[in-house]
Amino acid sequence: MKVEAKMLLGLGLFFGVMCAVYWNWSLENAGGVMMFAGMLLCFLPGSYYYFWSRRMKMRPEDDPNATQASGAGVVGSFPGTSIWPFTLAMGAFFIVLALVFGVWFLIPGLGLVVWAMLGGTAEGRRGGKV
């Protein structure tokens, strides 16, 4: 966790310095704002990882001497097959078509998105289908 934190904080620090130099030198706002946002995007997760890396014990994946047995236990919960990502993407597809060919495409588009959100949430609660 420490390496991840240092990497993100280091990148954020570099973007911060680059932003300060560029903004002061060029007085151009678009690039300055984008670099500032880039700095924040690195600092946000970087500081989170740094905070927790000082408060939790070393994870097996961070321990160079860890054995496979030391990682015994639950890795995570992985869903089986699910139709809802496809449904959600089809909804997004129709919404984009609505931007081009007419708002009536929003009816199937939003319908599919809402259906996929409800279906995906319910599936998440009961565990999907394998």
Binding site: Q68, A69, G71, A72, G73, V74, V75, G76, S77, F78, P79, G80, G127, G128, K129, V130
Partner: peptide
């Protein structure tokens, strides 16, 4: 159903 996985060992 969802697979709750553990690390594979030997």
């Amino acid at each position: 159903m969802t697979d709750v996985l553990e690390h594979p060992i030997e």
